[in-house]
Design a protein around this nucleic acid. Structure first.
Length: 463
RNA sequence: UCCUCAGUAGCUCAAUGGUGGAGCAACCGGCUGUUAACCGGUAGGUUGUUGGUUCGAGUCCAACCUGGGGAGCCA
């Protein structure tokens, strides 16, 4: 059976005018009176559904009025344009047949639900307007990420998800093991004997593909990774998840400025792409989720991201009249309240903060000439906060070794990372973009649990 | 992990320490163009759990559970 898809009807409505069409989909709402009724039907191909008008000339008229929400039906009828009405067109049904029944206990009512409630029915929430919009935008943004980098000639690297390098240093890791937890093998010193484990050493889920990404950047020049990342932190906020997706480009023969240019170009490309390719969804977010969303995103496209050094940011914060809960002081990390103030009050747009004190940043970030700061950059955006963290990497072998020593890292654990610096280890840079935080920024959704189909957070791995 | 707010019908919310209600959903009926349709009727409850104070607790107290917001960790 060939069905007409609602997406196609929207895109070619003039061509279908007065033509016979057959659609298949699920009932979203149904209203009837004694001689006719209306069905809003959605077939999954389009954010917006289509209204079906039916009357008592249909033999099963009285049954149709009793179909509960989510009933799957097949509708044959005439496609008519209705420029005078709220909806652009509708179908005058000549037959409606039942494809799969539903039940009146269906939990998604035709009313507004709280996002918290919808989270408890994650198996049904993709059928709601909000989540239909979120997850189609997520899909488009994912495609756009690949499209952006591929068009620029970047090579996509699948860095490992399981890692035995115990020292990526970006947070608590989930352990991967096949050992019997009820009967753990011990060695002479009563320690866990990992030689009996699957990898014969401790293994974990990755917290970042960056170090492996650097390997590929020094072979392919420009690369990116885009995959799942796992952090076992006990963090309970609307911006953190235990499993999330990260985009990590790495570029060779490039410095921190090139890195920021790339980040800015990418963010703008992604904004442009979803505005162009998900207009119905973006209109929905703008109306019901975040009133100023579209203007804000359009504004971003027209303006340059702000760029300030950490030292300059500290000065701006100190000069402000604002009372902060945490003191502003050169040498300590910016607090969330400071970041929000900078991006939301001072600049009112995305801002790169660069050149942080070396002591509060990772060992692999390149030491600046002043020997006090490193070539790091964070991109802060209004509403979401930190969305990107990146840096120029330390390419000087001796400097890197010294920093590892100070951080208590063993050279032998990083032998291959150090070796990269020996053989044509040119200057290079990269960053990590939290994909979910990007989706939050693009949609106006304020909780990360609502932009992941089945979110994993502390104490929650349902579905 | 810390701070804070909340938990009452399927959902969203009312209820001065004194007989737990409404809207929507459901069920029954009505209605010839609806748009979260409308109108009438019916049914629906161990007030998150456990303990305590009180003549009497949805309401006050304590602990716990679950959820929201804030902080830290970060993307």
């Amino acid at each position: 059976m060939k069905y007409n898809l609602i997406r196609d009807l929207y895109e070619n409505k003039e061509a279908y005018s007065e033509k016979e069409v057959t659609i298949s989909g699920w009932i979203r709402t149904i209203r009837d009176s004694n001689k006719f009724g209306f069905i809003e039907i959605n077939d999954g191909t389009s954010f917006k559904g289509i209204q079906v008008v039916y009357d008592d000339s249909l033999e099963n008229f009285s049954d149709i009025g009793k179909y509960p929400v989510a009933t799957a039906i097949v509708v044959k009828g005439k496609f008519v344009l209705t420029p005078e009405s709220k909806q652009p067109f509708e179908i005058k049904a000549t037959s409606i047949s039942l494809e799969a029944p539903s039940d009146s206990k269906y939990p998604l009512q035709k009313k507004r639900h709280t996002l918290e409630y919808l989270r408890t029915i994650a198996h049904l929430r993709p059928r709601s307007n909000t989540f239909a919009a979120v997850f189609r935008v997520r899909s488009l943004a994912s495609y756009a990420v690949h499209k952006f980098f591929q068009e620029k000639g970047f090579v996509n690297v699948h860095t490992p998800i399981i890692t035995a390098s115990d020292a990526e240093g970006a947070g608590e890791m989930f352990k991967v093991t096949t050992l019997d937890l009820l009967d753990i093998p011990r060695d002479d010193r009563k320690e866990v004997d990992f030689t009996k484990d699957f990898f014969e050493k401790p293994a974990s889920l990755t917290v970042s593909g960056q170090l492996e990404g650097e390997i590929f950047a020094l072979a392919f020049r420009n690369i990116y990774t885009f995959g799942p990342t796992f952090r076992a932190e006990n963090s309970n906020t609307p911006r953190h998840a235990a499993e999330f997706w990260m985009i990590e480009p790495e570029i060779a023969f490039a410095d921190i400025k090139d890195d920021m240019d790339l980040a800015e170009e990418m963010i703008k490309y992604l904004i442009r792409f979803v505005l162009d390719n998900a207009p119905q969804e973006m209109e929905f977010f703008n109306s019901f989720i975040d009133k100023g969303l579209k203007d804000r995103l359009e504004g971003i496209l027209k303006s340059d991201f702000e760029r300030v050094t950490y030292t300059e940011a500290i000065r701006l914060l100190k000069e402000s009249e604002k009372e902060f809960e945490y003191p502003v002081e050169w040498g300590s990390d910016l607090q969330t309240e400071h970041e929000r103030y900078l991006t939301e009050m001072v600049f009112k747009k995305p801002v790169f903060v660069t050149d942080y004190p070396k002591d509060i940043k990772a060992f692999y970030m390149r030491l600046n000439e002043d020997e006090k700061t490193v070539a790091a950059m964070d991109l802060l955006v209004p509403g979401v906060g930190e969305i990107i963290g990146g840096s120029q990497r330390e390419e000087r072998l001796e400097v890197l070794k010294e920093k590892m020593l100070k951080n208590g890292l063993k050279e032998e654990d990083y032998w291959w990372y150090l070796e990269l610096r020996k053989y044509g280890g040119v200057k290079h840079a990269g960053f990590g973009l939290g994909f979910e935080r990007l989706i939050m920024y693009l949609t106006g959704m304020s909780n990360i649990r609502d932009v992941i189909p089945f979110p994993r957070t502390v104490g929650n791995a349902e579905f």
